[in-house]
Write a protein that binds this DNA or RNA. Structure first.
Lengths: 344, 344
DNA sequence: TTGTATGCGTTATCAC
DNA sequence: GTGATAACGCATACAA
C-alpha cells in the first residue's frame, strides 16, 4: 500500500510537496503538480485519513443519530445530510438508536472514539440522552445539530418546523373547502410536535369563529394503529365529523382504512389530512393531503450548520425554523383522477 | 482531552496496562483493572480509534453502499447491517450512490481513504463500478460483500435470494386460488432479478400444464409508473387476465391503482401479487400479497460475513442464497377485513 | 505483570 | 520550492 513517501520518491520531490498537492495548497508549480498527480495515479495512492486526522486533529467525519432508519421520516433527512456531506468531502457514520437510550449512549461513545468532527441528532422523540457526551462535544468545539427545538447549550443548533402553523394550515384547508365539523386525532401529548399541531387546530377554528367541540379531539399516536383507534372513536359519535386532521401520514392511513371499512367514501363522506408527506402519502389510495416538511433541505441545512461551525468554532447556536407546506391531494379533494398514483 | 498516558499516570501504572485493560487482554489483576477503569471514568477518557487503527492497521469501520436510502428496500437491509455492526463494535459509513457510477466511485475512493475494514455493496441495480477499488480491497484482504449474485473474484461474497423460486411461488399462489389467466408485469430485462422471476412464472405455468400466453407478459419497471403502464396494457387485452404478478410492490401498487380506476375490484375482479414486502405492502388498501425477502437478516448476514473474513482473511467467497416467503394478503384473497391495515 | 523503544502515515515548523 | 525533525495517540516487540 503506497504511502506519501513512496509517491515522493517516485516523483523525485519531497514528501511535503505531495502533501501540498493533495491539500490544494499554493506554492507548487503546475509542472510538478502535474507530475505528482500522475505518480499518485500510477501508484494507486490513497491518502490515509486516519493518519491525517490524527496528526491534524481535524476530522472529516460526522455522526448521524436517527431513531429508526426504517421509519419513512428519516431517510429523507439522511439523504439530505448525505448529499451535502459528499459534496464537502465528509463521511457519515449512521447510527440507528431505536429510541433506546442505552443504544444511543453506546453510539455516542463510539462516535467520540472516532473523533467525529460533528454530530447531527435526528432522534425523533428527541430525548437526547448521553447528555454528558453531547455536552463534552459542544464544550470541545464539536458542533452539534439537533432536529427538534430543544436547546440547553449556547452552541447547540436546533432545527425545527413550526408545527403550530402546520396544524393551522391543515385545519384551515378543511375549513376552506367547506367543512365545519372537523375532528383531530392527536399524537402523544408528551410530544411538543403533537401539542403545537393541536394548538394550531384550535387557532384555525377560532379564527373562523367556530366553537371547538371537545368530542372531536381524540387521542391517537404517530402510527397506523393510532389512526385507526382515533378514527373509530370519531366515527362512533352521534354527529361524526366530516373531516379529520390526523397526527401524521401513518395515522391518516389508519383513519382512511377505518372510514372505508365503515362504508364511508374518502373524501366525499369524510376528508382526511395527514402530516409529514412520507412517500406513501402520494402513493396511497386516495393520495393523502398532507403537511410536508422539507426533510431533504433540513438534512442539507443540518450538515451545513455543522460545517460552518467547524470552520468558525465561535459561531453561536440557535433555532432554525423551517416552513411546512400544505399539499392538497385526493383525500380531501375528489378529482376525476382520485385513483391516480403519483410517482416520486 | 485525556490520553492513555494521562490515564496511566493517574492510575500509577504503565501505559500498556491501560491498553490491555481496554482491549480486554489477559494478564491484568482484577484490582488494577478496577482501578484503571475508575480512572478512565474520572478522566472521561475515550480511546482514540484513529491512533489505534493507524498503529494496528486494523479498522473497525465498514462502508455500506446503497442505491437510495429513500427506496424502502434499503433501510431494511441497512438496519440489519447496523444492528450487527453495533453488536460487534463496528461503525458504518453510509454511502448513498443514487445509482450514479461517478458518485459510487467517489464514495469508494473516500472509503479507501478511510481505510475501512470491509465493504457491503447493496447498490440495487448492482453494476458495481469502481471495479479497480473493489478489486484492490479484495486483493488486499478487505472483505467485500455484494447483494446480488454477481461474482468475479474468488474472495467476494454475494448475497442473493432465489428469484426463480419467488416468481414461481407468486404464480403458483394465484394458480392455487383458481386463476388460469395470469399476467405478469416484468422488471427491466437487464436485471437478473426480473429475468429469474419471469422464468419462475413460466415454470409454474408449465407445472400445471397451462400454456403461457405471450400477450400476458408485458414490460414494466420496479416502480409505480411501471406497474401502471403494465396494468393498462394487460387490462386493454380482449381477454384480460384475472390475476397479475407485478415486478415488485411499487409496481403492484401502480397496477392496483389502474385496476381500480378501470372499475375493477381487487382482488375480486383482478388479483395482484407484489414482491419485496416493503412496509407499504401491509399498509396499502388492499394489503398486498407479496414475496418477502429477509432484508434484515440479509443485512446481519452481510455484516457477519465481513467480520468472519476480517478475522480469517483466507476464507473464500461464494454465494449465499436466502429463502423468499409468500405472504398472502388482501390483494389476492378477499377477507372480511380487506380494509384492515396492519401495523409494523 | 511492567517499562522502554520504535513506528503507523501524516502534518507542521523550522531553516535553507 | 526542499530537507530534516518532531509530534499526533496508540500498539507491539522486547527485555526486565
Amino acid at each position: 500500500m503506497a504511502t506519501m513517501t513512496d509517491v515522493a520518491k517516485a516523483a523525485g520531490v519531497s514528501i511535503q510537496t505531495i502533501s501540498a498537492v493533495i491539500n490544494g495548497k499554493s506554492g507548487i508549480s503546475a509542472a510538478t503538480r502535474e507530475r505528482v498527480l500522475r505518480v499518485i495515479e500510477e501508484l494507486d495512492y490513497h491518502p490515509n485519513m486516519l493518519a491525517s486526522s490524527l496528526r491534524s486533529q481535524r476530522s472529516t467525519t460526522i455522526g448521524v443519530l436517527v431513531a429508526s432508519i426504517t421509519n419513512p421520516f428519516f431517510p429523507g433527512v439522511v439523504r439530505g445530510i448525505e448529499d451535502a456531506a459528499q459534496r464537502n468531502g465528509y463521511s457519515v457514520f449512521l447510527c440507528n438508536t431505536d429510541d433506546d437510550p442505552a443504544k444511543q449512549n453506546s453510539y455516542l461513545r463510539l462516535l467520540r472514539r472516532h473523533r467525529v468532527g460533528g454530530l447531527i441528532a435526528a432522534s425523533g422523540t428527541g430525548s437526547v440522552d448521553g447528555q454528558r457526551i453531547v455536552e463534552y462535544l459542544l464544550d470541545h468545539g464539536v458542533p452539534v445539530v439537533i432536529l427538534g427545538n430543544r436547546q440547553g447549550h449556547p452552541r447547540m443548533v436546533a432545527l425545527t418546523v413550526d408545527d403550530h402553523i402546520g396544524g393551522y394550515d391543515a385545519t384551515a384547508h378543511l375549513l376552506d373547502i367547506g367543512h365545519r365539523r372537523i375532528g383531530i386525532i392527536t399524537g402523544p401529548p408528551s410530544h411538543r410536535e403533537a401539542k403545537e399541531r393541536l394548538e394550531g387546530y384550535f387557532a384555525a377554528l377560532r379564527d373562523r369563529s367556530i366553537d371547538a367541540d371537545p368530542d372531536l379531539v381524540v387521542p391517537g399516536a404517530f402510527s397506523t394503529a393510532g389512526g385507526q383507534a382515533g378514527a373509530f372513536q370519531l366515527m362512533s359519535l352521534v354527529a361524526p365529523p366530516t373531516a379529520v386532521v390526523a397526527a401524521n401520514d401513518l395515522a391518516a392511513i389508519g383513519a382512511i382504512a377505518v372510514a372505508k371499512r365503515l362504508g364511508k367514501r374518502v373524501p366525499e363522506d369524510v376528508a382526511v389530512v395527514g402530516y409529514d408527506d412520507i412517500e406513501m402519502a402520494a402513493l396511497y389510495d386516495p393520495p393523502i393531503t398532507t403537511i410536508a416538511q422539507p426533510l431533504y433541505e433540513m438534512g442539507t441545512t443540518a450538515l451545513e450548520a455543522v460545517l460552518e461551525r467547524t470552520r468558525d468554532p465561535k459561531l453561536e447556536g440557535g433555532v432554525i425554523t423551517f416552513p411546512s407546506r400544505l399539499i392538497v391531494r385526493g383525500s380531501t379533494v375528489s378529482a376525476n383522477t382520485s385513483t391516480h398514483v403519483a410517482g416520486t
